[in-house]
C-alpha cells in the first residue's frame, strides 16, 4: 500500500482570517470608545473604563468552560465519542484559563483604587481563583502521558468536575455577603439595563469583540492540537518502522 499525500489542516483558511480581522477591529473600537469616547461614571469616575474589558473577560471564561464541558460530555457519550471533541475541550479550556487569569488581574487593578486592596478574600474572587486553579489542574492532567482514549476520558471527567465551580462563581454574589457588586448590566426583574447610552453600547461591543477573540484563539489552539496529534502518530510510525528495519537486518 502506498503512502498518500499528506493533507494537513489548511494553512490559515479565509474564514479564520476574516474572523481574526473582525475581532481585531471590534477590540480596537472597544478600546477607542472605552478610553476616549464614553464619559466618566458618576460614582467610579474614569475607573468605569476598566469595566468595558473586565466583565467581557469573565463572560468569555465562562463561555470557554461551557464549551469545554459540552465537548467533554460529547466525548464521554459513546455514540458521539470522537477525538475532535477531546481536542476542542482542551483548546477551549486553555483559552478559558487565559481569560480567567485576565479576569483576576483586571479585577485586581480595578479593586486597588476602588476597595484599597489588590486582593480581598471575597467569595466571588476566591471562587474565581479556585476556578483558575481547577482548570490549570485540568490542563496539567491533559499532559500526563498515556494512551489517547484513557487520557481523554480522564480529562473529560476532570472537566465536568471543574465546571461545578462555574455556577458557584456566578451566584456567589447572591448566595453570600460579597464586597463585589452583584450583576449590574441587566436588571433580572425588569430585564432593563442599568448601564446607559454610549456606556452600554461600548460594553456590548466589548462582549461581542472578546467573544470573537475567544473563537479565533480557540480555533488556532485546536488546529495546533491537531498538528501535535499528527506529529505524535508520525513519530510512532517512524519508530515502528525503525524497529522493523532493525528486526529485518537482524
Amino acid at each position: 500500500m502506498s503512502t498518500p499525500a499528506r493533507v494537513l489542516p489548511q494553512d490559515r483558511p479565509a474564514a479564520l482570517r476574516v474572523l481574526g480581522a473582525t475581532a481585531l477591529v471590534g477590540v480596537v473600537a472597544t478600546v477607542w470608545l472605552g478610553l476616549f469616547v464614553t464619559p466618566p461614571d458618576q460614582f467610579m469616575g474614569n475607573l468605569v473604563r476598566l469595566l468595558y474589558i473586565h466583565p467581557p473577560m469573565a463572560w468569555v471564561a465562562f463561555l470557554a468552560y461551557g464549551v469545554a464541558t459540552l465537548a467533554s460530555l460529547l466525548y464521554l457519550w459513546p455514540r458521539t465519542r470522537a477525538e475532535h471533541f477531546d481536542r476542542l475541550a482542551g483548546a477551549s479550556a486553555e483559552v478559558g484559563v487565559v481569560f480567567t487569569g485576565l479576569t483576576l488581574v483586571s479585577g485586581s487593578i480595578w479593586g486597588r483604587p476602588t476597595w484599597g486592596a489588590w486582593w480581598v478574600w471575597d467569595p466571588l474572587l476566591t471562587t474565581t481563583a479556585l476556578l483558575f486553579v481547577l482548570y490549570l489542574g485540568y490542563l496539567a492532567l491533559r499532559r500526563v502521558p498515556g494512551e489517547f482514549h484513557v487520557r481523554a476520558r480522564r480529562s473529560a471527567m476532570a472537566a465536568l468536575i471543574a465546571f461545578v465551580d462555574v455556577p458557584i462563581v456566578y451566584f456567589s454574589v447572591e448566595w453570600w455577603r460579597s464586597l463585589h457588586q452583584a450583576p449590574t448590566v441587566l436588571n433580572p426583574t425588569t430585564h432593563k439595563t442599568y448601564v446607559h447610552g454610549s456606556m452600554f453600547w461600548t460594553l456590548l461591543l466589548g462582549f461581542v469583540s472578546f467573544t470573537l477573540v475567544y473563537i479565533w484563539l480557540m480555533a488556532h489552539r485546536y488546529r495546533l492540537a491537531r498538528l501535535q496529534d499528527l506529529e505524535d502518530v508520525e513519530g510512532l510510525e517512524v519508530a515502528l518502522e525503525e524497529r522493523r528495519a532493525e528486526g529485518d537486518a537482524g
Binding site: G34, L47, R49, I53, H54, G101, L102, V105, W110, P113
Partner: peptide
C-alpha cells in the same frame, strides 16, 4: 484618566496579543 485604567488595558491586550 489614571494609571490603573491604562495598566488594565495594557495587561489585557498585551496578554491576548
Amino acid at each position: 484618566m489614571n494609571g490603573y485604567v491604562e495598566a488594565g488595558y495594557v495587561v489585557v491586550l498585551g496578554t491576548l496579543g
